[in-house]
Amino acid sequence: MRIWKIIKTPPMPWARHPQDLFTLKNGMAAIGSNGFTLIEALIALMVLSVGLLSIAVMQIDAIHGNSQGSHVTEATSLIEKKLEGYKSLDYEDVKDEQGNEDIYQWVTTVQENTPVNSLKTVTVKVTWASGTRSHSLSFGTIIAK
């Protein structure tokens, strides 16, 4: 009963002897030193697996988001390059055209006398395929005579 006086806890109803709860290891008292049961270890492993799987799914989503962002940046750069090229041309030389660059297809649409006379509305649309989906991005500008 000296152990009970030192720790000052009442005996547990399921323990027949104090030795069932307290064993001495290297001179120190260990509570419940029987270890983990197989069920406890499996449940802990299951909780860990669910957490790691969730992190893996988030990582895959982040990779897809980065890829999509990279495609949008490339398409934006291509559109800006085309629009700046049209601004440097003479007014009469700005016409409809289309072409390909890497995985990107671009189409230029020129509307004359819009929104008013002596102005051209130039729209560049870039499309690309990513997996099974098709994406597009378009910008426009107005060019004066």
Rank of each mutant, 00 (worst) to 15 (best):
Q68S: 13
H64E: 14
G69E: 07
L78W: 02
V50H: 03
L78T: 03
L52C: 09
S67H: 11
A75I: 01
G51Q: 10
A75Y: 00
Q68H: 13
A62L: 13
H71R: 01
N66C: 14
L53F: 14
I55G: 08
Q59V: 10
V57A: 09
G65Y: 14
A62H: 12
N66I: 15
S67A: 12
S54F: 00
D61C: 09
L52T: 09
G65K: 15
Q59D: 08
E74Y: 02
H64I: 13
A56Q: 07
L78F: 03
M58A: 09
G69H: 04
E74P: 00
G69N: 08
H64M: 12
M58V: 04
T76P: 01
G51C: 14
Q59N: 11
I55L: 12
A56R: 01
L52Q: 05
G65Q: 15
H71P: 01
V57F: 08
M58S: 08
N66G: 15
S77L: 06
T76L: 05
V50G: 07
T73H: 04
A56N: 01
G65L: 15
V50Q: 04
S70L: 03
D61A: 15
S67R: 13
T76R: 07
I63Q: 12
S54R: 00
D61N: 14
V50Y: 03
V57Q: 08
A56E: 04
A62D: 09
H64S: 13
A56Y: 00
T73G: 03
I55K: 02
S54D: 01
L52W: 06
I60C: 09
Q68A: 11
L52A: 11
G69T: 08
V57W: 06
G65A: 15
L78M: 05
I55N: 05
I55T: 12
S67P: 00
N66W: 10
I79S: 01
S67V: 13
L53G: 11
A75P: 00
D61S: 15
A56T: 08
G51V: 14
Q59G: 11
S77P: 01
I63N: 12
M58T: 06
V57D: 04
I60P: 00
T76E: 05
Q59Y: 11
L53N: 13
A75V: 02
S77N: 08
L78D: 02
A62V: 11
A75D: 02
G51T: 14
A56D: 04
L78I: 05
N66V: 10
V57T: 07
Q68W: 10
S54H: 00
S67N: 13
S67W: 08
I63T: 14
T73S: 08
L53H: 10
A62P: 05
V50M: 12
G69F: 05
G69W: 02
